[in-house]
Amino acid sequence: MHSKKSFLTYAIALGVFGITNTEVGIVGILPIIADKFHIGASQAGMLVSMFALIIAISGPFMTLLFSGVNRKKILASVLVVFTISNLLSAFASSYNVLMIVRLIPAFLHPVYFSVAFAAAASSVPQEQSALALAKVFTGLTVGMVLGVPITSFIGDQFSLETAFLFSSVVHAISLLGILIFLPSMPVTRRLSYGKQLNVLTKPQLWLNIAAACCILASLYSVYAYFAEYLEVVTGMSGKMVSIMLILFGASGIIGNMQAAKFLSRNMVKTIISYPLVLGAIYCLIYYLGSYSIPMSIIIIIWGAVFTGGLIVSQTWLTSEASEAPEFANSLFVSFGNLGITIGTTLGGWFLSQMGTHLIAWSGVLFLVLASACIGLKIKLFGSKKGFETSTE
């Protein structure tokens, strides 16, 4: 039984990797797409920005729409759509066709994530839910950190069609795993739309949302310019930057699991401590970033702490809406994307106006805001209520 649950969690995580790779992996083949369809780089980039915009806007509403459907059916159906979408993308005859077949599954992206988090957490005892979530987040980590270089490599070495077919195969394998290992999970206690939306009336939830949004903004205001920093400040070559990205991603997998263990032991202390730890790393990046060897060590630690922030912010946000776990997860997906957008925008402003070396301070600024939201939440509403992990 334990082995079957492990396979179930990894099947869900593989689906998360595939969907994340579909979202961000295309960045690595945008030049090939632009060349094939004879369009500019900015127009090709719309394939990324429009996908993210649809996720941010539609997430909670799409999750509400499917909230009464059997979780196994939802996960399997979304993977079928993504499998077909990538298959059609491989043979798209024009840019407009590619845009359409790519954007349709974007509406279902937050639905899969919301249900996947809830299904993984509910498949194990409550005290193990953080570790189950960490395994799912591993798929997100690998997809976000390695999706771009993997897709870029396949596109360069083989073809654009092969890159899309790779994503299609990943989704198909995950679909097979879901069908085999996930038991039927009908919704036994369906909440009305009104009751699910009612969680939005809780001021403490909005403080949690603000903190999670700021944490994600802090993460990506610096990470989005990872390569730029290493090339300009540290003086690394393009090849070394690629190696650093791999190290960053590998340590991130370990960081997911460690963050989950800390959350299981003491959620409150972990959430309070996280901005302080990440802030200390940003300070090290600023003061030691021009030295290759220290920076290489920092990157390994940074990768672990970075990915830990994903599960920390998700746990913090959803802890205040445990009565509507899937809707809460959809809020995390939507506001997480909003945080990423805000963070990369401010980080870009810091880079252009103040120089690459000061980029770390944009991350520190968001961490200060996150800590203020966390502190205010605890001061106004206490540190006991709302810190349980959602497992329903």
Rank of each mutant, 00 (worst) to 15 (best):
S174L: 09
L88M: 14
N208I: 04
A56Y: 02
L358H: 09
V24F: 14
A372H: 07
W206P: 06
I253Y: 00
A172I: 09
T391H: 13
I271G: 02
T307R: 00
V368W: 01
I104V: 15
S167R: 05
G59Q: 09
L65T: 12
W349K: 11
V48L: 14
E23I: 09
R189C: 08
L133M: 15
I378W: 05
T270F: 01
G18N: 11
L276R: 04
G289S: 07
V169I: 15
S58N: 05
I254F: 12
S292R: 12
T345C: 09
N337L: 07
L133N: 11
L64K: 00
G375T: 05
A106T: 06
G308Q: 05
I342H: 03
Q157H: 09
I209Q: 03
N96E: 14
I293M: 13
Q314W: 05
A372F: 12
L8E: 13
F226A: 02
S3V: 14
P325D: 10
G279W: 01
A44G: 12
L30P: 08
L182H: 01
W316Y: 12
L88D: 03
M1W: 09
I209A: 04
V233N: 00
I281P: 01
I293N: 11
E228H: 09
G375V: 09
S319E: 08
N21L: 12
G289F: 00
F226P: 00
C214S: 15
F37Y: 13
G25E: 08
S89V: 06
I180R: 11
A259M: 11
P183E: 12
I178F: 07
E326S: 14
H2T: 12
M144Y: 07
G143W: 01
L191S: 10
L230A: 04
